[in-house]
Structure formats: C-alpha cells, structure tokens
Amino acid sequence: MAVTGSILELCNLTRRVGDGTPARAIVDNFSYSFGFGRLYSIIGPSGAGKSSLLRLLNRLDECTDGSVKFKGSDTREFAPCELRQRLGYLFQTPHLFDRTVRDNIVDAQPHLSESKISRLIQQVQLPSGIVDAPVDNLSVGERQRVALARLLATQPEVALLDEPTAALDPANTEAIERLISSVVTDHGVTVVMVSHSRQQVVRLGGEAILMVDGQLIEHGDAVGLVKNPGTPQGRRYMNGEPQ
C-alpha cells in the first residue's frame, strides 16, 4: 500500500440525493487532503452538507462520484467493517447500547483487558467506579464521554466527530474539547470534526474548512479563517448573515 503524505484524500467527492433532474448534490465536487495527526474543523451553515461529508468518509453512505483514499488506497478497496474501525465515527447524539458502560466499550472491542478499559475510562475523565453503571443513569456529558471511550477502544487512525458538543453545557463542552485536543496531540489521531461554533473552532485551533451548499468554499488555519475569511461566503458566514 503506497502511503502518501495524506491520511485521507478526497477527490471530487460528490453525493447526489433525490429524484430531481439533476438530483440535488448534498456534497458537491469536494476535494481536500487531510494530514496525519492533525485536527480539522468543518464549519458552515445548517444544511451545508457537513455531516453528509463525514458519513461518506466513514462509508455509512455511498458517494455518487469521486473517491476517498485512505493512506493511498481507495476506501472501496477496504472491507466496510474494517474501514469503519479505522475511521471511527461519533454521532452528534450518541447512542449507547442498553447495558453498562463496560458492555458498551467491550461491544466495540471484545478482547479488551481490564486495565485497558480502566485506561479508556480515565482518558475520557470519567470516575473509575462508573464502569459497571447502567448507561441509563448517566448524564448527557457522561454519555458523550462513554461514546468517545467506545470510539477510542477501536484505536481509530481517524476520528470523525459530528458536532460532539452540540448537546453539552459549557463545562462539559470544555472537557470534551480538552479530550479532542489530547486525542490529536497525545495519540496522533487525525480528528475531523463538524462544528457549528466559530468560537470552538478558534479554541481548538488546527485547520478549518468552510462548506456551503455541499462545496468547499475555503480552508486554512482555523483562527485565520474565522477571524479573517477570504471569500464573500466566508465573510457572510462569519458575520452570521444568510448565505
């Protein structure tokens, strides 16, 4: 397998939906390269196709045109189940299976040792005693952390996070942001995160990508793009004006 400088390479990635002629493109001719061990925030107005793009990367949906290369190989060459373990996906509203925290983690990675489970719980800053708690008793913030621990249990090389803090209060948001930063810096995982919050993108740093109507409008250093956008769409979005 030829490893290029990019962990993920998107080439003219397109997904059309609906019966219209032509069908509506929710991701439109999107080309971009994601580097190893870096943090990327995808921002843009509602309905811009941010979540749809993440779903294409994880192959939960199929693209209509274009391709995604993972470490130089087309993702269609991988078995979908293997690919999804290597490109972990965290949904905006995490779904935990109706059992204990431990069961949820082991469900993702059946042969985890007890010490590895403890490390994961510690890594997502949950108290060790929570491991045998039924997930029904957890708060929203705790549920999101368990979902993150479950994702990390599969040791993904890329973590695709779909608005992981959308439902959280400021304290939990801050904690999850710290976790995301540590996943990138301490574990070398490439994080591609959808965010609605410009402030969050600035706090997390890394690279930012602005998406409008399924298209990549501009990209660059997160702080620079939010504070000093280079396109009219970028300025409208950053000023909170309609596109």
Partner: peptide, 9 residues
C-alpha cells in the same frame, strides 16, 4: 442505534 453499531465496524 443501527448506524452506531455499523460505525463501530
């Protein structure tokens, strides 16, 4: 629930 399980491989 189903897509969460699929996303976990």
């Amino acid at each position: 629930a189903i897509e969460t399980a699929l996303a976990l491989g």
